[in-house]
Design a protein around this nucleic acid. Structure first.
Lengths: 152, 152
DNA sequence: ATGACTGCAAACTGTTTGCAGTTAA
DNA sequence: TTAACTGCAAACAGTTTGCAGTCAT
C-alpha cells in the first residue's frame, strides 16, 4: 500500500502531522468510522488534534478521492479508505454494517453508461434488512437490540 | 392507487387534515422531496401546518412503510412515495437525481439471503458520476454548476 | 517569509422534543 | 371524553466557519 506521506506529497498537499495521522488511522481501520470515532482513535496516538481539523481533512480526503463517505440510517456520516470495491448490508435491527462483493455492478455501470450517457464514477449497492442474529431475536420475541444502533 | 384516507384508516392512524395533505403531496409528486420542500408545497394548499408536524409525520409514514427515505450527497434527507422499485443516478456535477430500473437486484437479494442468511427487506443501487450535461460542461471547460446542487 | 493549516469557540443547519392547546374517534 | 395529534419555541447533534496563531515549504 502506498505510504500516506507519499500520497500527500503526490497530491500536492501539505504533509502535516494531523493529516498523516488521520489518513493512517482511516487506512489501518478496516471498517467505517464516523468523524468522532476517528477523532478519538487519532487522539489516542497524538493528543494535539481538534475535531474541526478532522472535519476539514475528511472533506479534503474525500475531494482527493482518498476515502469514501457513507450515510446509512443514522444521522452522522461515516468514512472508509478506498480499497477493493464492496457493498453493504445494513441491519435494521441492530444497525450493524456487513460487507459483500458482487461482480454484476461492473456490467451495470457500462449499461448505464451506454444507455443513458451517464459517466459512472462509483457504484454502491445497499441492501437493508435483518442480520441472522436479529432474525433469531425477532423470532424468539425478544426486544430489538439498540446496542449498536447508533455507532455501528 | 389506494386513497390516502383509506390508507390511514387501514393502518389505524388518525386521519388528520395534515396527514392527508402531506401524503397526497408526496404521492402526487413523482420525484424526491426533502422536509422543507414538502412543507412549502403543502402550505400552498393549506396554510395551517408546522414544520415539526412534517418531520413527525415523515417519521410515521416511514415506519408504516408508506414512503422511502434517501440521503444522497447532501446534508438533508429526502423522501418519496413507495411505487415501482427503482434506483438512482446521482450527478456529482449538479446534484440532479435520475432514476433507472434494473431487474438484476432480485437475483442479488436471493443470493445474499441464501449465502449470508441476511433477510433482505429492500435493495438500493446508487450510481454516482456525471450526467450528460455536466460532462459536456466539463469538456468545454466551464465551471461546475452549483445551481441544483442543494435542492436537486 | 508567507500562505496553508490548525485549535478554539461560536455559528449554522437539519431535526427532535416539551408543553399547552386542539381535535378525531 | 380523552388520548392522539398539533403548533410553537426552545433544544439538540453534527458540521462548518471566522479568527488569530503556528508551521511546512
Amino acid at each position: 500500500m502506498t505510504k500516506t506521506v507519499t500520497l500527500l506529497n503526490k497530491l500536492e498537499q501539505r504533509r502535516t502531522a494531523q493529516r498523516v495521522l488521520l489518513l493512517n488511522v482511516i487506512r489501518e481501520n478496516k471498517g467505517h468510522l464516523d468523524a468522532v470515532q476517528l477523532y478519538e482513535q487519532a487522539r489516542q496516538q497524538q493528543s494535539v488534534l481538534s475535531l474541526s481539523t478532522v472535519y476539514r481533512n475528511l472533506k479534503l480526503f474525500k475531494e482527493l478521492g482518498l476515502i469514501k463517505e457513507h450515510q446509512f440510517g443514522n444521522t452522522h456520516r461515516c468514512y472508509e479508505s478506498k480499497g477493493q470495491s464492496h457493498h453493504h448490508l445494513v441491519c435494521l435491527g441492530c444497525g450493524k454494517i456487513l460487507e459483500f462483493r458482487c461482480q454484476s455492478t461492473e456490467k451495470l455501470k457500462s449499461q448505464i453508461s451506454s444507455n443513458r450517457g451517464f459517466k459512472v464514477i462509483d457504484a454502491e449497492v445497499r441492501l437493508t434488512g435483518y442480520c441472522p442474529e436479529c432474525q433469531n431475536r425477532l423470532i424468539h420475541g425478544q426486544k430489538n437490540s439498540e446496542e449498536n444502533k447508533e455507532r455501528g
